[in-house]
């Protein structure tokens, strides 16, 4: 089933340089994917940054939503998705610089696998090591997930499409049907773990999660001010909700 439209949602808070780089890379990736998806809309949410983003400086003519009070990651994404409905949503961090060919396999997979509701992609650090190849469970004592392959050489992780229990919200393509069924991201989290929560809930509704092996895109990771501190309560919240309800992955 062909995906006709996609809303790309990017949250930004005082990191205009990152945002501009992200948008430039996104433009190229969209250009490659247009043969599969005719309609893209880019929505930038200025999440109460101290220095409001100026629309004219943004490449690709995105829609700009300015919120003057801080919104959680979930609330900001839900707001953007509600106002800009499409057949799919791409949640994209402003510090992810997509490979020009990164989006095509994601949409290709969503088209070919009707029961796949969420598709992530391979991400890497500036030194070329793996940042993300899906989220795995079982190794972390607190019950949370961890990035599969993190810090390893790219050749050490699977080179085929994988079906982990979750993928990162740093770059997450979501089928609208899945998004609507789950009513978007959970507002229980301030910043962090809402993406994994979303995937696990999708799995409970019978949706498959996939992670494409490449082309890999660059992710600087944790570029939002206060990201690390705000992650702690979210992770505690995640653990309290999920620790005993997640199966542990078969070690690869």
């Amino acid at each position: 089933m062909c995906i006709k439209s996609c809303t790309v949602i990017i949250l930004s808070c005082d990191r205009t340089g990152l945002l501009l780089s992200c948008l430039h890379a996104l433009e190229q990736a969209i250009s490659s994917a247009r043969q599969l998806v005719p309609s893209f809309e880019i929505v930038v949410v200025d999440n109460a940054g101290r220095f409001p983003i100026a629309q004219p400086e943004l490449p690709g003519s995105p829609k700009l939503i300015r919120v003057d009070t801080h919104h959680s990651f979930a609330a900001a994404n839900n707001l953007a998705a509600k106002g800009h409905p499409a057949e799919s949503y791409l949640l994209l961090n402003n510090d992810v610089f997509l490979h020009p060919g990164a989006l095509t396999p994601l949409f290709d997979l969503l088209t070919k696998e009707p029961r796949t509701g969420i598709v992530g992609t391979r991400l890497h650090y500036p030194d070329g090591s793996v940042q993300h190849a899906g989220v795995g469970f079982g190794e972390i004592p607190d019950g949370g997930g961890s990035h599969i392959g993190i810090g390893n050489a790219p050749a050490t992780v699977a080179q085929t499409v994988q079906h982990p229990q979750a993928v990162t919200g740093a770059c997450m393509l979501i089928r609208d049907q899945t998004w609507q069924q789950l009513e978007g991201l959970s507002l229980r989290y301030d910043f962090g773990s809402e993406d994994v929560d979303f995937c696990l809930r999708a799995g409970q509704h019978g949706w498959r999660i996939a992670c494409c092996p490449g082309p890999s895109s660059l992710h600087l990771e944790a570029s939002t001010p206060g990201r690390i501190e705000r992650d702690v309560p979210s992770r505690i919240q995640f653990t309290s909700l999920w620790k005993e309800k997640i199966t542990h992955d078969i070690p690869s």
């Binding site: 029961r115 982990p164 229990q165 696990l200 799995g203 309800k245 199966t247 542990h248």
Partner: peptide, 24 residues
């Protein structure tokens, strides 16, 4: 490719062996 989930009385997952499946 078959949508399938495990159902346990309280929704608790068996964690004494490794397997990646959803539980409700």
């Amino acid at each position: 490719g078959i949508p399938c989930v495990l159902v346990t009385p309280e929704g608790l997952a068996p964690q004494w062996f490794d397997i990646s499946i959803p539980v409700i």
